[in-house]
Design a protein around this nucleic acid. Structure first.
Length: 286
DNA sequence: AATACTTGCAACCGCCTGGTC
DNA sequence: AGACCAGGCGGTTGCAAGTAT
């Protein structure tokens, strides 16, 4: 491969005299031999990015890998299945159902799901010393509720979660539908997942969804309460009430769109615009 | 020390897609 | 149009290494 470059993999297998098919050679090259592969454990930044991307793309490992230089789809897939998935599962089971009304993934009428106001979010972004604060700000301006890790509501509003502090809850704020891996994603992120990852009670987590974002973008009302029903598949029967008075984000309606939703129906490029400005994307692969 | 169990990762398998004839 | 092939992809398996008993 190094001397001849990528050509026909069956030729590679033949010319190398290997007892392998071209397909096997290709896999070996891609997953192991490629010189640009990044070895070693996943960094917290990579971990967060994977969770973020997975929430948008689902099990599209190759697309996720395309955004993680030096990592292969297989590697990411293994990492997800062996580490992240397990961690999210554990954290969801270890979360006391009494602490939140959101134990039922479809029940989002409970209070306390979100107590971070837009101003809080802005403060969080503006106070962040991260170089990404400007992009964060832009995102918040564009999508008042952005699928980004802005989850804490009371303990430490004014600091970005420390990227080095382990898995903070990008997962809990993201949306994924129709990707079955045993976790409740629903329309509103990984329900009940991940609270312990950052030492927060689940009830303290806001779980904004991409649907929320879409609705938000279309809704310019300044009224404290808005309600919008969208008839397309993605937003079917979702009503959102944004009550700024008590800073709670209360939602109601049919939250398990499930069958109505197909990843392919999403505008991936639009969704990934947010990914491209993900605050930790500016880390350098070593 | 021996055995059982768990974990992480590379490789395999089967399906799908796109190109060519 | 349909057969064939190569490549791409996601799910699954096998196994070595690590850990617990």
């Amino acid at each position: 491969m190094l001397s001849n470059g990528q050509g026909c993999w069956s030729d590679v297998a033949r010319n190398a005299g290997l007892q392998r098919c071209g397909k096997s050679c290709r896999l070996r090259w891609i997953n192991y031999l490629r010189p640009d592969l990044k070895r070693g454990a996943f960094s917290p930044q990579e971990e967060e990015l994977i969770i973020h991307l997975h929430s948008v793309l689902g099990n599209r490992w190759s697309q996720i890998a395309a955004r993680l230089p030096g990592r292969t789809d297989n590697e990411i897939k293994n990492f997800w299945n062996s580490t992240i998935k397990k961690r999210l599962k554990n954290s969801s089971t270890s979360t006391s159902p009494n602490k939140s009304n959101a134990s039922d993934p479809r029940d989002f009428t409970g209070a306390g799901l979100f107590s971070m106001s837009e101003q809080d979010i802005m403060n969080l972004c503006m106070d962040s010393s991260s170089s990404s604060s400007s992009s964060m700000h832009a995102m918040v301006m564009r999508n008042r509720f952005d699928p980004l890790p802005m989850l804490e509501n009371s303990h430490d509003h004014h600091h970005m979660p420390n990227a080095g502090a382990g898995l903070f809850n990008v997962s809990a704020c993201m949306t994924q539908v129709g990707i079955g891996d045993g976790l409740f994603y629903g329309n509103h992120g990984i329900i009940g997942g991940g609270g312990n990852n950052i030492g927060l009670d689940q009830s303290e987590l806001f779980i904004p969804s991409l649907e929320c974002i879409s609705i938000e973008e279309e809704n310019n009302t300044t009224d404290n309460t808005f309600e919008k029903t969208n008839n397309n598949n993605l937003l079917n029967n979702i009503n959102i009430i944004n009550n700024n008075n008590n800073n709670n984000f209360v939602e109601s309606g049919n939250y398990w769109g499930g069958e109505n939703l197909r990843m392919g129906e999403w505008d991936m490029e639009e969704l990934l615009e947010d990914v491209s400005s993900f605050p930790f994307l500016d880390f350098q692969v070593q």
